[in-house]
Each structure stands twice: as C-alpha cells, then as structure tokens.
Amino acid sequence: MKKNILSLIKTIIVGIILVLYVFPFVLVLINSFKNRVDIVSNPLNLPKTYNLGNYIDAYTKMNYSHAFMNSLIVTVFSVIAIVINSSMTAYILVRKKWKFNKIMFFIFVASMIIPFQGIMIPLVNIYGSLGMLNSKWTLIYMYIGFGVALAVFMYHGFIKSIPVELEEAAMIDGCSIMQTFWQIVFPLLKPTTMTIAILDVLWIWNDFLLPSLILVEAKERTLPLSTYYFYGTYTVNYGLAMAGLILTIVPVILFYLFTQKHIINGVLQGSIK
C-alpha cells in the first residue's frame, strides 16, 4: 500500500514536469488560431473560434509545399546515399586487411572530432569559387561527406562481429564479391542501417546552418530555412508566425508518433557507440 502511494506521488511529480516541458508547444498551438489583438491582450486564453485563416496565410506565404518537397528530397537522397556508400566502404575496410585500409579507417574516425564550424568557411569559399552553391544537389553531396564518417564507423563495428564463413561459402558457390555483399551481408546489417537512417533523418531534416550557407535563393530553401525567413518577416504578426511554426512541427510529430520506439532506440544505439 505504501509503495503504491509513493509510486503515485512520483508519477504526479513527473507528470507536472512533463506538462511544463510541453507547455511551450501548447502555447504556440493555441495562439496560432488567434489574431494579434487577442494574443497581446491574453496569450494564455483559449481561442474563441478555431479558424484556419492564419494557417492558410502561413502556408502560402512560406511557400510551404515547395519547401517541404525540398526538405524531403534533400533528406531522402542524402540518407540513402550515406547508407549505401558507407556500408560498402565499411565492408571493404573490415574484410580486406590491407595497411591502406587501416589508415583510411583511422582517418574516418579521427575526422569525427572536427566540428562543422571548423570547416564551414573554407567549404563555402571552395564551392563558391566553383560556382556550385545554390543547388540542393550540392547540399546533398555535402551531407554525404559529413555523414559517412560516423556511418562507416558504426557499420565497421557491426560487420566485424559477422562470421566470415557465410560469405566464403557464397563465394565458393560462385557469387561475386558485389553479389555477396548485397545478398548476404547487407540484409544482416539492418539494425545498424535503421540506427544510421534515424540519426541522419533527424539531423538533416532539422539542420539549419549548412543549408543557410549553401542555399541562398528562395526557391531552393528547405523547411527550417523558409521558417526562418518567414518568422523574421512576420514576427510582429504573432498569430501568423505561430501558425507557421506549427506547420513545420506537425510533420515531425506525426512521423514520431509512428516511429517513436525506433527513434529512441536508434538514438540510444547511436550514442553508445
């Protein structure tokens, strides 16, 4: 009995803390239905009517569908390319014990300590002088560059634990090394692939600094960028600005509702490595 009461008290305490944690989101949501006058007079009131005017306005002014598509293209292509390239690279680095491979693996791992800010200036210089800025394909190319080191490292750890006999049997049966990799090894890597995909989707979908340096033109903007410019323009028009924030948050929350177990597990696996 005493134990039950104690656990109830604990549940209530974390419940209150959770409410405080999510309260900012709730505030943005309720104010997204109101107009400026109502928000200034009382930001805590529930809206009198739930009209979607702010949303329709924000949707067109942010060029939402376009920015959403840009974000989707950049995220999907980058993540697929990171998974394919780094799994193949890690495979060759593990299975061929050449000296060169050991050096390469060391370079990949060592590079992870370089923060983005350490190379952003020369990166913009170099690709700017080549005239390659302002394209989402350049952005994808860079995400592959920034993403492969961690992915190679994680695949490397996993492939090391797979017994080599299976592959040898496949090769004796006449599989080429390419077939062996795709038909035998890659399916076994699924847990690592999930982890990498989840970490990279969260990172690339939400990233701001790199796209803000690469994509200057409005038509190439990703969702975080268009939210940034939109909010900057309409800061004083609170209702509209709040609706814009909600529009950007909603797809992520929907995605989270269906995949939360995988996401939390992926984050955990990724940080333990």
């Binding site: 979908w205 975080p224 939210t227 929350i253 939360q260």
Partner: peptide, 16 residues
C-alpha cells in the same frame, strides 16, 4: 514526451 524537443530544429525551438 521528454524527448520531443530533440525532434525539432534549433531555429524553431528558439522562436517558440
């Protein structure tokens, strides 16, 4: 629930 802020980009969190 507690993990939710990590799903959303820093710019949006800042504006909220």
């Amino acid at each position: 629930g507690f993990f939710t802020p990590n799903l959303i980009g820093g710019v949006l969190l800042g504006y909220i």
